[in-house]
């Protein structure tokens, strides 16, 4: 009995600092964010007035917010399928080979671990228009017309997506490959004996068995693209999300509202919107994964 009490006490003692941390650094700021989003506070004025939902009304009336919400959606829609399809194909190819598998995997994951700020600037340099941009010079060499990339309102966002895909692919390949290698060989052998061809093996056995991994990675990537910031900040002129706001995502909007205009009320209202979107996706993911288990 005494030992039990001592152990309980020890447990609480061990948890004291970490729980205080979570309460003050994670939980309290979250509550505080909700609260600020209902006030008209900017950091300069000493007063906070409760304004109800007017910040939420205000951001949805703000054309720039709507544009950045739409841009965020575009990042997700262009980015997630590209990353998933590309990395799944790569993982399948890698699974075919035996030698140097580790080496390829290592090279593919390099962009993922390099500082995003550095890679953003390297790509920005590569995306320059002729005569300085190396990609355009290559297109030129092939006899293809030059592209505007980051300087065009239509091409800038896909260009940033392309860079992000380049970064994320390696991470997904590793997880896909681990998933592929955990598929029991007997399943595939049995199907082969039954006369299934390669295509059938892939779509009837491999991919359905990989489904939980695909769902997991899709959600991870969705959240990553929803929170996109660093690339855009470093790849658009003066971190503006331009040209003409065409690349500005939600988080950059929040950053500018909060730390350029010091409009903390509307900025936190926008963060709450982001939170709700991410929450919805996570809940859906849990539902989908739980259903899959019943198969």
């Amino acid at each position: 009995m005494k030992l039990r009490q001592k152990k309980i006490l020890t447990a609480y003692l061990f948890l004291l600092v970490p729980l205080t941390f979570f309460a003050f650094i994670r939980f309290y700021p979250m509550v505080s964010a909700f609260y600020i989003s209902f006030t008209d506070w900017n950091i300069i004025s000493p007063v906070k007035n409760f304004v109800g939902f007017s910040n939420y009304v205000k951001i949805f009336q703000d054309q720039v917010f709507r544009v950045s919400l739409l841009n965020t959606l575009k990042y997700v829609l262009y980015g997630v399928p590209s990353v998933i399809i590309l990395s799944l194909s790569l993982a399948l190819l890698l699974n075919n080979i035996t030698k140097f598998q580790g080496f390829y995997r290592l090279v593919y994951v390099m962009p993922y671990i390099t500082p995003l700020v550095a890679t953003s600037w390297v790509w920005r340099w590569m995306y320059q228009k002729p005569p300085t941009g190396v990609i355009n010079n290559f297109l030129n060499f092939l006899g293809l017309p030059a592209r505007s990339f980051l300087m065009s309102t239509t091409e800038a966002l896909p260009s940033i997506v392309a860079t992000t895909v380049w970064i994320e692919v390696g991470y997904c390949v590793i997880i896909f490959l681990a998933g592929l290698q955990s598929i029991p060989k007997e399943y595939l052998e049995a199907a082969k004996v039954d006369g299934a061809n390669r295509r059938q093996l892939l779509f009837r056995i491999t991919i359905p068995l990989l489904n939980p991994v695909i769902v997991f990675l899709s959600v991870m990537e969705m959240i990553m693209f929803l929170r996109i910031f660093t690339q855009v900040y470093n790849m658009s002129d003066q971190g503006s999300g331009g040209p003409l706001n065409s690349t500005k995502p939600l988080v950059l909007y929040i950053y500018q509202k909060a730390f350029k205009s010091f409009d903390m009320g509307t900025a936190t209202a926008a963060t709450v919107i982001l939170f709700l979107i991410i929450l919805a996706i996570t809940v859906i993911q849990l539902k989908v994964l739980n259903r899959k288990v019943q198969y």
């Binding site: 729980l19 650094i25 994670r26 309290y28 979250m30 505080s32 600020i36 910031f229 982001l274 939170f275």
Partner: peptide
Amino acid sequence: IIFIFILSTLMIPTEMLIIPWYIM
């Protein structure tokens, strides 16, 4: 409860916390 409380903080995007963090 403590474990769930800790895990649930994973759902909060950092972006939502930076403004309160900054004020703090």
